[in-house]
Design a protein around this nucleic acid. Sequence first.
DNA 1: AGGTTGACGTTAG
DNA 2: TCTAACGCCAACC
Length: 133
Amino acid sequence: MDSAEFHAAVYEAVRLIPLGKVTSYGHIAHLIGMPNHSRHVGQALKFADPGVNPPLPWQRVIGSSGAISSRGPGTNGAQRQREALEAEGVEVTVGRAGEFKVDMRIYGWFPDNVEILQPEDQDQVDGENSSSG
DNA sequence: AGGTTGACGTTAG
DNA sequence: TCTAACGCCAACC
């Protein structure tokens, strides 16, 4: 697994995220078979070209905690990600510290069987919110 | 070769 | 629910 292949695998997994849903860096890492490379998933997205085709829905990847990671005090990456998510219908809330958060119980997308995911089987993979609500 | 960084995750209190 | 601490691994200096 080279760096280029890692990036390609990350992009392929990220493109699987359905519209209006979000997942975590760790889950992308999990889907490509490298669960402990969660940090590098973000790194791969950072180096991704915004003009690639098919387009990369990078905005659908956030922290496992449901928070949009801050790229840094002087950057507006988090703000752009928030706008991109809201444009898809994902509701983003703002915490006290100005952090953007998404309710994973509603918009979370964490299937373990993406390889067998079919358009007609999507009804049986979103049972993550069975705990409450 | 060693120390620090980073679009993270999990566990403990 | 939120904060603090530890673990993780490649890139960078």
